[in-house]
Every structure is written in structure tokens, then in C-alpha cells.
């Protein structure tokens, strides 16, 4: 019988800790597939964040560093400057990248660091129990916005790809999603492109991935996918935000 589907080589034989319907597991698998297909297993150095993505080093069978909350872009900068021939990838969530780590993300992008950030945007702080994130959309109910996010009190959702697009150091910024098969295929293509940009040393690359969080959104997995399609992607338009010649 022909084998059509198996565990990517870069994924350890471990059980994901992610909740049912969580987008992280899809993103992890896609990254592992891309590492295998681009033959990057002995070249990549991953930086794990604080948050739901923290335990990627238990899953990826590649060199991994765990960063302090929000500092991914800074530690990735340190690694990349010492080892310019390695592929340095920082995996971050919305609170990590766009709240506590805004300065590090912004300035790494502005310096045009040849690093790639994989930014999983699920609109909440997942690991700590579903508090408001910088990307929580208006009126969205979270544990710290019990009547929904009100802009007058809690500000507006941050569109990080668009924020970073104005910086001359950014080379590739694309927003994708993992809520339906076609989107997943596009996400994988975006990851490949981001890695190519880094290998060609064209500057800072980031793939923002809209990702369902049924547990903290208080939805079932199907409702969560539908919410990405109907609500979240209206606030965060899916598609290429910026690409310079690679």
C-alpha cells in the first residue's frame, strides 16, 4: 500500500498539548513539513515564545531556544548575527509579539534583521486563560473584557503586518489563516516564501496566521473556524501585505 500521509521527520513523536480545534497544531505540522521539504532540519534554529506556542521545542526535532515573553525578535537577532548562515525563526503569539514584545518586534523589523517571525494570531492570551490580547477585536468578549472590547477603554485591535509594512527593513509580510483547507495550503506557501526571503537575506519576514482558539472563544471547533472566516478576517484581511523583490 502506498503511504500518502505520515509524521514529518522534523516532528518528534510527541503528543501535542494543544486544545481540540486549536490552530497551533496545524501550524506546527506545516512548519515541520516545510523544514523537511526545504531540507532545513540541520540549519534552522527556532525560538519559542511564552504562551501557547511555548512548547514547540517538545515537538520540533530541531535546535530550539525558549525566549522570555516578547523577546523573541531580540534573541533571534543575537543568534542570527552570530550565525548568519543558519535559518532563525521566532514563533510568537499575539500578546508576545504585539503587546509585551512590540518594541523588540518593531525594531528587529526596522533593522531589517534577516529573521522570520511566525506570528500566530488568535486574538486572545490563550495559555493564561483567554484574556484580551492586542489583537482582540472590538466587542469580543474575553475574561478581561467581560462586556466585550470597548475601544474607548481598551484600544483597538492591532494589525501588525500593516504596522510593520511601513518600515523599510521589512521584506515579506503576509497574513494567512488555518481555518479551512485552502487557507492551510496558502499558509504553507507563505512559510516557504518567508524562509526563502531569509535565505536570500532580503530582510525581515513575517507570516501572520489567523488561528482558531475554540477553548477561549467559548465555541466549538467548527464555530471557531467560521468565526475566523466571518469576523476575524474582516478585521485582519487575509493576503499579501508587502513583498520586496526576493
Amino acid at each position: 500500500m502506498k503511504k500518502v500521509y505520515s509524521r514529518p521527520k522534523s516532528l518528534k513523536p510527541a503528543h501535542f498539548h494543544y486544545c481540540p480545534g486549536c490552530g497551533h497544531s496545524i501550524v506546527n505540522r506545516l512548519i515541520a513539513e516545510v523544514i523537511d521539504e526545504m531540507n532545513l532540519g540541520d540549519k534552522i534554529i527556532c525560538v519559542a515564545p511564552a504562551g501557547c506556542g511555548m512548547l514547540i521545542y517538545n515537538y520540533f526535532d530541531v535546535d530550539c531556544l525558549e525566549s522570555a515573553h516578547g523577546r523573541g525578535a531580540a534573541v533571534a537577532t543575537g543568534i542570527k548575527r552570530v550565525r548568519p548562515d543558519n535559518l532563525v525563526v521566532s514563533y510568537q503569539g499575539d500578546g508576545d509579539l504585539a503587546a509585551i514584545g512590540t518594541a523588540e518586534s518593531f525594531h528587529a523589523a526596522n533593522r531589517g534583521e534577516n529573521i522570520t517571525i511566525i506570528f500566530v494570531n488568535n486574538g486572545v492570551y490563550g495559555m493564561t486563560g483567554g484574556q484580551m490580547a492586542p489583537t482582540t477585536i472590538l466587542d469580543q468578549v474575553t475574561t478581561t473584557t467581560p462586556v466585550g472590547r470597548i475601544s474607548e477603554k481598551a484600544g483597538h485591535p492591532v494589525r501588525m503586518c500593516e504596522v510593520l509594512a511601513v518600515l523599510d527593513g521589512t521584506s515579506y509580510l503576509e497574513r494567512v489563516a488555518v481555518h479551512k483547507p485552502a487557507a492551510i495550503v496558502a499558509t504553507k506557501k507563505a512559510l516557504v516564501k518567508a524562509f526563502q526571503h531569509q535565505m536570500n537575506k532580503t530582510g525581515f519576514s513575517m507570516v501572520e496566521i489567523l488561528s482558531p482558539c475554540p477553548t477561549n472563544w467559548k465555541m466549538d471547533p467548527l464555530q471557531a473556524c467560521k468565526w475566523v472566516e466571518d469576523v476575524m478576517s474582516k478585521q485582519f484581511p487575509i493576503g499579501l501585505v508587502k513583498e520586496v523583490q526576493c
Partner: peptide, 13 residues
């Protein structure tokens, strides 16, 4: 904060 984390990155490299 960024500086010390860059140090950490360089050190781990």
C-alpha cells in the same frame, strides 16, 4: 531589555 536578550541569543549561538 532588547540588549540583554540579544546577549542571550548571541551566547546561545
Amino acid at each position: 531589555i532588547a540588549a540583554i536578550n540579544m546577549v542571550l541569543g548571541a551566547s546561545v549561538a
